Simulated assay, not measured.
Amino acid sequence: MNNGHHIVVLGAGYTGMFSAIRLAHRTRRTGVKITLVNPSSRFVERLRMHQIAAGQELAVHRIPHLLAGTGVTFVQGTATAIDPENRSITVDGFRSLGYDRLVYALGSSTDTGSIPGADAHAFTLNSPEIAGRFAARLAELSESGGTVTVCGGGLTGIEAATEIAESHPGLDVTLISPDEPGGMMGGKARAYLYRALDRLGVTLETGARVTKVLPDAVELGDGRIVRSDACLWTAGVKVASLAADARIATDDRGLILVDATLRSVSHPEIHAIGDAAAVRLPWGQIHGTCQSGLPTAQYTADTIARLVRGKAVKPFRFGYFHQPVSLGRRDAVIQFTKADETPRRQCLTGRSAVAYKEMVSGSPLKTYRLSRRMNVTTIVSKGGRATRTGSD
């Protein structure tokens, strides 16, 4: 069978990489051609970026090596425009790639544009290079002492603050958040989290909103100034404007609006996955995490493989299962959840949680390697009745 289909995958993060490798395995006898486009040849483990920021050395994984033996063509470059009417992509402003189907997996990044001074004076975890510069700054401060602020009390902010405090005990680390850190967890897990923050000496500024980032401080909404020799910004995310610029239907945040099969409602030959897709289920809209992103990639690879063969597809179903949070290298807390991410009574802490979190963080790379020769599932829960619709 040789249908000459060309599928382009934009973005080689967790979801784009998995969809490309799984799709290659699922379509290996159909003559489908797959091209993966990404600005860098390095595969970035976003789940470990806080470790780089704290000064730890991590293994470097190259995309061509991960794709070896799959038949996927890797194009290193930045997608600068999409022409959905002619089904083509412009790479680096001049190279054109045609496609029959497009998998849009460009993900998201930390938004520093909404708060004055954040783009100029704050570091982010948007790339290993930026995280590395932040780590170098922490190394400088460790020699004389100083204050580090982590702005944003979500799971990324919590992991970053605890990792920094453990790796640099001589620095004063302040976690600033308008909401209660760990507020989505159950009482037992949240209490454990707060004990860990206290043990590591992390100062909490809750109910505080940063209104300006200065070269050596952050300004809060109540007018207070908090000293900051190094500021790490983890609050808020944004997505690329590429889809909206191409007049592909998006929501007010720029996420591609998709149907029940994760296909664009305006251009059904475009499949959106991970952080780039506005995926609504009966219980609500999923948010960007590796936990939800990998299942969208798996589902989309399987869906395209079925469509190429002229087969019918079923709607996407997914349910959350857990919230794994590292608290430095020697501690962690795992909150188990219902499909809609509300907490269950069960949680895991201490050494068992550390092993669990390490298994979660390392699982994508293991999944990619296995997926080159077999179908490996990343869907832990389909959510049961909470995600069923009348069309199932």
Rank of each mutant, 00 (worst) to 15 (best):
R253M: 11
T367N: 08
R29T: 08
H168N: 12
Y192R: 09
L307A: 00
T110H: 01
A196C: 14
V37C: 03
C231P: 02
T27L: 01
S109M: 09
I63N: 10
A297T: 00
V148Q: 13
V354I: 14
T80H: 01
R101P: 02
H61A: 07
T73C: 02
L257P: 03
F94I: 07
K314T: 12
T261Q: 15
G69Q: 14
L255S: 04
Y194N: 14
T337Y: 03
V173S: 07
V239T: 15
H5V: 14
K314E: 11
T261V: 10
E159V: 09
A276Y: 09
L102G: 07
T162C: 15
V72D: 06
P364M: 07
I164H: 04
H61K: 07
A105D: 01
G254I: 02
R253C: 01
L365Y: 00
L204N: 12
P178Y: 02
V150F: 09
R62V: 03
T211L: 08
L197Q: 15
L365D: 00
T112N: 11
D92N: 15
K188Q: 13
L141Q: 07
I379T: 14
L36D: 10
V37N: 04
D340S: 00
R62A: 12
R62C: 10
T349M: 11
A118I: 11
P324W: 02
V360C: 00
G4E: 13
L307S: 04
S114H: 14
T342E: 13
S381C: 09
V308A: 06
F321P: 00
T80N: 01
L47C: 08
S292G: 11
T337Q: 05
R26M: 07
E163S: 15
S381A: 08
P39Y: 15
G77D: 00
R22E: 15
R388Q: 15
V226E: 12
G69W: 01
P324K: 13
G221T: 09
V202I: 03
M17S: 01
R87I: 11
